Amino acid sequence: MITKINFTETDTVQKLFDLQKAAYQVEAELINFFEIPPLKESFQEFQQCGEEFLGYFIDNKLAGAISYTIENEELTICRMVVHPAHFRKGIAQKLLVAMELQNANCSAFKVATGRENTPAKNLYEKNHYQWKRDVEVAPDVYISFFEKAGKN
Rank of each mutant, 00 (worst) to 15 (best):
F33T: 05
F34W: 10
E35W: 11
E35Q: 14
I36D: 13
I36P: 07
P37F: 06
P37G: 11
P37W: 05
P38R: 11
P38N: 08
L39H: 12
L39C: 09
K40N: 13
K40H: 05
K40V: 06
K40P: 01
E41L: 01
E41A: 03
E41C: 11
S42H: 06
S42A: 09
F43D: 08
E45Y: 02
E45R: 04
E45Q: 13
F46R: 05
F46V: 03
F46T: 05
F46I: 05
Q47K: 10
Q47A: 10
Q47I: 04
Q48R: 06
Q48H: 09
C49F: 02
C49D: 15
C49K: 11
C49Y: 01
G50C: 10
G50N: 07
G50T: 09
E51I: 03
E51F: 09
E51G: 04
E52Y: 11
E52T: 15
E52S: 13
F53M: 03
F53G: 01
F53P: 01
L54P: 02
L54Q: 05
G55S: 01
G55T: 01
G55F: 04
G55P: 05
G55E: 02
Y56T: 03
Y56H: 10
F57M: 04
F57L: 14
I58C: 06
D59N: 13
N60Q: 12
N60M: 06
L62Y: 03
L62I: 06
A63R: 09
A63L: 06
A63W: 11
A63K: 09
A63Q: 13
G64E: 05
G64W: 07
A65H: 02
I66A: 07
I66T: 11
S67A: 05
S67D: 07
Y68T: 00
Y68P: 02
T69P: 00
T69M: 07
T69Y: 01
T69I: 15
I70C: 00
I70H: 00
I70N: 01
E71D: 15
E71Q: 14
N72M: 12
N72D: 15
N72K: 15
E73Q: 06
E73C: 06
E74D: 13
E74V: 15
E74H: 13
E74P: 03
E74L: 06
L75H: 03
L75F: 07
T76F: 09
I77M: 07
I77K: 02
I77A: 00
C78S: 11
C78Y: 04
C78R: 12
R79C: 04
R79L: 06
R79W: 03
R79A: 00
M80D: 01
V81C: 10
V81G: 01
V81I: 13
V81F: 03
V81T: 14
V82P: 01
H83P: 09
H83V: 06
H83C: 07
P84W: 09
P84I: 10
P84E: 08
P84A: 11
P84K: 10
A85I: 12
H86K: 15
H86Q: 15
H86N: 14
H86L: 10
H86C: 15
F87H: 14
F87Y: 13
F87M: 10
F87W: 12
F87R: 12
R88G: 04
R88T: 09
R88M: 08
